[in-house]
């Protein structure tokens, strides 16, 4: 479990986050949603320690991440995996080398053990047999899957995903969502996903935090989204006429 406790973040005079207090639970897909510029990416960067809060605390379980020195933070990061928006695969390395990198850096496993683990992770994301390809030789969806494989190779307790579906076709986006969901449930991982994708919200949103102007505007799960009377959430999630129609149909079906 990760807890953000009264977190503020400013860049100069600009206040981006204004007192965020929320929890991200183990074994659940915790989604952070909100308009562009609402502070989602800043919150995610604060959670992983790429930025430091101006005020407030980030707790990993009972460990105060914000009060730790760099060395202690690095130890926590051994428990963290992250999937980046652009995948952030190292261009000069093959798919196998990319996934093996954390193993090479932090474990004393034998070559065979590392290869077995890499192949297991590739198999887990349905990417067998691409070990020797370079990232540039794979599609955007494949890169995301390799990114997930790299993120889970050290069996993390915490998984962060920044816009995992951006730039992907709906079918591949669904596949990525299903992958993240199954990995989260299988390994009881605390997964935090920063997304704009409404399919993800309605598909895998176990715990959703809606950010607006640096504050939590609403919190709940995917089922509660349908029944919400929060006008801001309604306007945000059901922004298009198509989604509004879907919602009214769903509510009508439920009543009948």
């Amino acid at each position: 479990m990760i807890i953000a406790e009264n977190v503020f973040k400013s860049f100069g005079e600009t206040k981006v986050l204004k007192g965020i207090t929320t929890s991200f639970y183990a074994g659940k897909n915790n989604l952070i949603i909100g308009k562009s510029g609402a502070g989602k990416t800043v919150l995610l960067k604060l959670l992983v320690g790429l930025l430091a809060p101006t005020q407030g605390r980030i707790l990993y379980g009972e460990r105060d991440f914000t009060a730790m020195d760099e060395k202690a933070k690095r130890a926590i990061r051994m428990e963290v995996g992250m999937l980046f928006q652009g995948s952030a695969l190292f261009d000069s390395m093959t798919v196998e080398e990319n996934i093996r990198f954390p193993l090479d850096m932090f474990t004393n496993k034998t070559k065979k053990e590392k290869l077995d683990r890499v192949n297991y992770c590739l198999d887990r994301v349905e990417m067998e047999g691409v070990n020797d390809r370079y990232p540039s030789e794979t599609s955007g969806g494949m890169q995301k899957r390799v990114g997930i494989a790299r993120a889970i190779v050290l069996e993390p307790k915490y998984l962060f995903c920044d816009e995992p579906n951006s730039g992907l076709d709906p079918k591949t986006a669904l596949l990525i969502d299903e992958l993240i969901q199954s990995i989260t449930y299988e390994n009881n991982i605390t997964t935090v996903i920063n997304t704009h994708d409404m399919n993800s919200v309605m598909g895998i949103g176990d715990n959703i935090a809606l950010l607006n102007e640096g504050q939590i505007a609403w919190q709940g799960n995917k089922d509660e989204v349908m029944d919400t009377d929060n006008s801001f959430l309604e306007n945000f999630i059901f922004a298009s006429p198509f989604l509004q129609r879907l919602r009214s149909d769903a509510l009508a079906n439920r009543r009948s």
Partner: peptide, 14 residues
């Protein structure tokens, strides 16, 4: 720029 350094940082690499 391509977030490779961030990716390494999050892995715990100095």
């Amino acid at each position: 720029q391509k977030e490779h350094i961030d990716a390494m940082e999050i892995m715990g690499v100095n």
